[in-house]
Write a protein that binds this DNA or RNA. Structure first.
Lengths: 227, 227
DNA sequence: ACAAGTGGTTAACAATAACTTAATATTAAT
DNA sequence: ATTAATATTAAGTTATTGTTAACCACTTGT
């Protein structure tokens, strides 16, 4: 099983904090993404589907707690581990932060080492609990648990066969799937359907997804192409 | 699906701390068990199989970190959520505590309310299915103790099976539950009921709850959708 | 004990969404 | 240009779910 580096999104308007935290997490092998305000945090989270998000509470446009509340209602991000970071050492805010759906609430000033420990602890816990069936490729997110495809913040609802076909192609971008393979995997080896059936499904997917991401390889099959 | 109150084991040699924390957690509907030292904590944990353990770091016989390390090697307790409690505000200990497998590390003096929040947050994360006896999602409040659903201040009375089905779906908003899953969880794996049974229950829920919050995924199952 | 009510299940049928096919148009390869 | 493969469209078919009402088992109040 491949273990790609875990992606962590850090959102804070104070660039030196982002830098020091980012540096320490990178040292541990995490891949770091950053955002400078609440809106950017939400957009980037959707784009990159991080494994964990660190949110400063005091940020322009949307504060960390607001971002947290929004993410918890988001179809693909409502289970992502969230750590709130704050200079506010206030009981009410602390409780409100956790109630907004955050997993941890850490007061500044922070020891980077402690933060790294907390990140690891949280990831350890979330890995035990949930194995998310999410494929990300290009601007697409394919969530098998929710039977949902999202593309650039837009949610696309596919029917069962459409979804299974799309997921198959997207599972190995660039690789061509023979029509026979597709039939075997999506329809099953016993089922016999005409050749045009696949085409019609491909058409429906292409229609629902505006992007041009399924390529025909004439005489062979279809493949998913990253734009 | 029975909803027993969640069991929490508190281990601390300072009886007044145990008392104040215990009191506040009981107020929230948790059942409290206590231990006065490390060995007792391990024994009681095995006996009662708590849903969460709070360990003081400084305890006789075995300290909290040692207890945590041992529990993490124990077959039945290696996944139980653990919160370490400590008067030691020291970075090294903090990190060691988390590395021993604890999920959280909280410094004394503690606000009981904050601790309760952290307990809830951790239980929310560790329990896929509603362990908090109260689920709040969208405009809905689902209270497993009172078997009550409220929606925008209106009280909705659901029958037992209806309630369990609704709670299951609401416990993982967005996630599609396969019909088989639903049967296994709500009806139990031994019980055999016809296919239309689920539909009829869904219909009744949809009828009682005016909102359109249960979506059908044809050929797959049902899911709860936030409006 | 009895009637009335509640909850749960089933069966019959209706409605609908998903899937398949067939007919025709378009495209790509040689 | 010719041909084979795929795209497109609409219509037809099937599978799945929705709806209703009836039935039975249990509980509750009298």
């Amino acid at each position: 099983m491949e273990t790609e580096p875990k992606k962590i999104l850090i959102a804070d308007d104070e660039s030196d904090i982002v830098e020091i935290i980012g540096f320490n997490l990178e040292k541990e092998g995490f891949t770091i993404f950053t955002a400078k305000d609440g809106n950017e945090a939400i957009n980037k989270a959707q784009q990159i589907q991080p494994d964990l998000i660190i949110l400063d509470v005091m940020m322009p446009y949307k504060n960390g707690i607001e971002v947290c509340t929004i993410l918890r209602q988001h179809p693909n991000l409502n289970e992502v581990p969230i750590i709130l970071l704050t200079a506010i050492n206030d009981e009410q805010t602390h409780i409100k932060g956790l109630e907004s759906g955050a997993d941890d609430y850490v007061n500044k000033p922070i020891s980077p080492k402690v933060l790294v420990s907390r990140v690891k602890s949280l990831l350890r816990r979330t890995n035990i609990v949930s194995i998310n069936n999410i494929i990300e490729i290009g601007d697409f997110t394919i969530d098998s648990d929710k039977f949902l495809v999202t593309h650039q913040n837009e949610t696309i609802v596919l029917a069962k066969k459409e979804f299974e076909l799309f997921r198959l192609l997207a599972s190995k971008p660039g690789r061509v799937f023979l029509r026979d393979e597709i039939l075997n995997i999506v329809w099953g080896s016993e089922v016999i359907v005409g050749d045009r059936t696949i085409d019609v499904h491909v058409r429906k997917i292409r229609q629902k997804i505006k992007a041009d991401c399924i390529a025909t390889v004439k005489g062979v099959g279809y493949k998913f192409e990253v734009a």
